[in-house]
Amino acid sequence: MTAVVSFKSATDAYLASDTAHLNIDGTISHFAPKVFAMAQQNLVFATQGFSRASEVILQYLEFDHGTARQARWLEALPAALLRARECIRSHHPEREGSVLNEIHVWLALFCEREKRPKLLTMTTSRMDYLPDLPPYQLAEHEGLVAPAVDVSALLPADWRGTPEEAASTVLEAQRRGTAPWGAHVHIVGGEGHLWGVSEHGLESAIVIKWPEKAGQRCDPSLQGRPQMRAAA
């Protein structure tokens, strides 16, 4: 499971996530980035659901569309997502019908055609918080977070912080949420990575760090330390 924070300004689209990859029992198996950068297409994306979904999507798109322009890459995304969904079904047939076998893709990009930042999403099944979005169709949105938290309470209308502060604040709040498969499984840990996409390209930063180690569980009682330096 992946925590996702997406928002935008007049010039940039932002996508943030953590780096803790979990075992099904809620312990941390390892740490690795969950946001993937496609510099050629001037976009970044993250997936929620099956842990290998991003890898399968990347393999499919890199093989046939790695150097494609942004619009062609996006046109190929539904087929890549379907490939990833078929991979899940073959690896975990016992989980069919559960949220564990579904995938949600989140994208932040600077649109080549429209010359503006955009946030897009696509899923393999209908989501409770996006009930009107058909599976395998890209939809634009103005900013969403998942797992859901009350962003208006965290970042009120008169809030004047930086994008880095916004991402770290929401990610910290998401640590208190639990996984859909376990009421006592918390899913946010490791580092919080923020990516920004503008007409000038991609930028990234580590915005927060949490103390858990591999083999431990994410513990929301332990607050993270804000960080303001470039991500590796």
Rank of each mutant, 00 (worst) to 15 (best):
M1T: 09
S6Y: 02
F7E: 00
S9L: 04
S17V: 03
D18E: 03
D18T: 01
D18R: 01
T19G: 01
A20D: 04
L22H: 01
D25H: 08
G26H: 00
P33H: 05
F36A: 08
A37H: 10
M38W: 11
N42G: 09
L43P: 10
A46E: 11
A46H: 04
A46Y: 03
G49C: 10
G49A: 06
S51F: 10
S51W: 03
A53H: 00
A53Q: 05
S54R: 02
S54E: 11
E55Q: 14
I57W: 01
I57K: 01
I57E: 07
Q59A: 13
Y60K: 07
L61A: 05
L61H: 00
F63L: 15
F63S: 13
D64G: 15
H65N: 13
H65C: 07
G66I: 13
L74R: 09
E75Q: 15
A76C: 12
L77I: 07
L77S: 03
L77A: 05
A80D: 03
L82P: 02
R83D: 12
A84N: 07
E86D: 12
I88H: 14
R89T: 12
S90W: 08
S90H: 12
H91F: 10
H92G: 05
S98A: 14
S98I: 12
L100E: 15
N101D: 15
N101T: 15
L107K: 04
L109W: 02
E112Q: 13
E112W: 12
K115I: 05
K115H: 15
P117L: 07
L119E: 00
L120H: 01
T121H: 15
T121Q: 09
T123G: 04
S125E: 12
P131M: 01
L133M: 12
A139D: 08
E142I: 06
E142T: 11
E142W: 07
G143L: 06
G143P: 05
L144H: 10
L144I: 12
V145H: 06
A148E: 14
V149I: 08
S152F: 04
S152K: 10
A153E: 04
P156Q: 08
D158M: 06
R160Q: 13
G161T: 03
P163K: 01
E165T: 03
E165D: 10
A166R: 02
A166D: 00
A166M: 09
S168L: 02
T169Y: 00
V170A: 06
V170K: 03
E172T: 12
A173N: 05
Q174W: 01
R175N: 08
R176A: 13
R176Y: 12
R176C: 09
T178F: 09
V185I: 15
I187W: 02
I187T: 12
V188K: 00
V188C: 04
V188E: 07
E191V: 06
G192A: 10
E199C: 13
E199M: 14
H200L: 12
L202Q: 11
E203F: 14
S204R: 12
V207T: 03
K209H: 06
A214W: 05
G215C: 10
G215Y: 07
Q216N: 07
Q216I: 06
C218E: 02
P220V: 04
L222G: 04
Q223N: 14
M228L: 13
R229D: 05
A230Q: 14
